[in-house]
C-alpha cells in the first residue's frame, strides 16, 4: 500500500526550517544599516555555538546584530510560533475553525492586566519581568481560569460550546473594566492602545529569556499531542469510545495553549491574526491532520511573524508600524489567495 499515514514529511520539515532560517537572516540583515547575510549567518552561528570565530563583521555591526536585531528577531520567532501553535491547538480542542489563541479570554485578561500596569505607571512593557508583562500574564491566566470555572458549570454534554460562550462572557466583563480604566486615565490611552496592537520592541534578551521556557515546554508538548487533536475531531462521544479521557485531555491542552499564549502576550501585546490564519493556511496547503498542522504551524508562524516585524520596522523608518496592522494587512490577502488556490 503506498498511502502513508498523515505526518509532517521530512521534506516539509526541512523546507519549513529553511523558511525560518531565511526569515531570520533577512530580518537581521535588513534595517537602517544593511549587514551582509553571510556575516549575519556566521555571527548567529557564533552566538549559538561555544567558541569564537570571526564572522567578518565590524564591531558596530556585531553589536547591532547581537544586541539590537537578533533578540528582536528571536522574540518574533518565538511569539509567532507560540501564537500559531496555540491557535492550531484551540481549533482542534474546540473543533472550531474560528478558534484563535485568545478564545478563552487571554486577550481581555492580558489587556486588563497591561492597562492596570500602564495607568498606575507600574512599568513600560520592556525589560525582564516588567510589571506590564507580569500583570498581562496574570490577567490572561485569570481570565482563562474564570472562563473555565463558568464553562464547566454548564451542560456537560456541550462542554466545548459552554466554554466558548463562557469565554465570550468573561472577555466582555474584562473589557468593560479595562475600558472604564482607559476612560478614567485618558492620558495613558495612547500607550495602552499601542500595546493592544502588539509589538516586538525589546530591551534585549530579557523578554526572550522570559518566553523561552514556556515556548519550549508548551510547544514540544503540544506538537507531541497533535495526534490527540485528530482523535478529538470525531467528537467527544466517539473520542471517549476510542479510549480518550476527553475532559482531561481538553483541560490539559487548553492549559498548555493558554500558558503559551499568555507568555507570548505578556511580551508582545495582542498580535492579531497569526494564531487564526497560520494554522488554516497550513491546513489548506499541507493537509487536515493535526499531526501535520501543529508542527508546521510552529515553523510557519515563526517565519511569518518575523517577516511581518521586518516590514513593520522598515516600511516607515524611523517610525514603526504596529505589528498587528502588518500581520492583518499582509496576512489577509495572502490567506485569500491560498483559499482560492486550495479550493480549485
Amino acid at each position: 500500500m503506498n498511502v502513508r499515514p498523515a505526518a509532517a514529511r521530512l521534506s516539509w520539515l526541512v523546507g519549513a526550517a529553511a523558511f525560518v532560517l531565511l526569515a531570520t537572516v533577512m530580518s537581521v540583515s535588513i534595517g537602517p544599516t544593511s549587514i551582509s547575510p553571510r556575516g549575519v549567518l556566521l555571527e548567529t552561528v557564533d552566538a549559538i555555538l561555544p567558541g569564537d570565530f570571526d564572522s567578518g563583521l565590524t564591531e558596530r555591526e556585531v553589536s547591532i546584530v547581537r544586541v539590537l536585531r537578533l533578540p528582536r528577531v528571536v522574540l518574533g520567532l518565538l511569539v509567532g510560533a507560540a501564537l500559531a501553535t496555540s491557535g492550531a491547538t484551540f481549533q482542534g480542542v474546540f473543533r472550531n475553525p474560528l478558534a484563535d489563541p485568545y478564545l478563552l479570554g487571554v486577550a481581555s485578561g492580558g489587556g486588563l492586566g497591561a492597562t492596570i500596569a500602564f495607568v498606575y505607571d507600574l512599568g513600560d512593557g520592556r525589560g525582564f519581568l516588567d510589571m506590564v508583562q507580569v500583570l498581562a500574564f496574570v490577567g490572561a491566566l485569570t481570565a482563562v481560569g474564570m472562563t473555565w470555572a463558568m464553562g464547566v458549570l454548564g451542560d456537560r454534554t456541550r462542554a466545548a460550546t459552554s466554554l466558548i460562550l463562557a469565554g465570550v462572557a468573561v472577555a466582555s466583563f474584562f473589557t468593560a473594566i479595562q475600558t472604564f480604566l482607559q476612560q478614567a486615565f485618558t492620558e495613558d490611552i495612547r500607550e495602552v492602545y499601542t500595546w493592544f496592537l502588539g509589538g516586538l520592541s525589546t530591551s534585549g534578551w530579557a523578554e526572550v529569556s522570559q518566553l523561552l521556557p514556556f515556548a519550549i515546554i508548551c510547544i514540544v508538548l503540544l506538537v507531541a499531542s497533535s495526534r490527540t487533536l485528530d482523535v478529538l475531531a470525531v467528537g467527544d462521544e466517539e473520542a471517549t469510545m476510542l479510549g480518550m479521557s476527553v475532559g482531561r485531555t481538553r483541560v490539559a491542552l487548553a492549559v498548555l495553549a493558554s500558558l503559551l499564549t499568555a507568555a507570548a502576550v505578556a511580551v508582545s501585546g495582542l498580535i492579531a491574526f497569526v494564531g487564526l490564519i497560520v494554522p488554516h493556511a497550513v491546513r489548506l496547503v499541507f493537509g487536515s491532520s493535526y499531526r501535520v498542522i501543529v508542527p508546521l504551524s510552529v515553523a510557519v508562524g515563526a517565519g511569518f511573524l518575523t517577516l511581518c516585524d521586518l516590514f513593520a520596522r522598515t516600511a516607515l523608518t524611523p517610525a514603526e508600524l504596529p505589528i498587528g496592522v502588518v500581520t492583518a494587512f499582509f496576512g489577509a490577502p495572502f490567506f485569500i489567495v491560498i483559499l482560492r488556490t486550495a479550493n480549485k
Partner: peptide, 16 residues
C-alpha cells in the same frame, strides 16, 4: 459517525 474534514481513510481507521 462524525466525519472529520480532509482525513484519509487510512488515518481514519488508524484512529481505532
Amino acid at each position: 459517525p462524525t466525519i472529520p474534514q480532509g482525513v484519509s481513510v487510512l488515518d481514519y481507521v488508524l484512529l481505532g
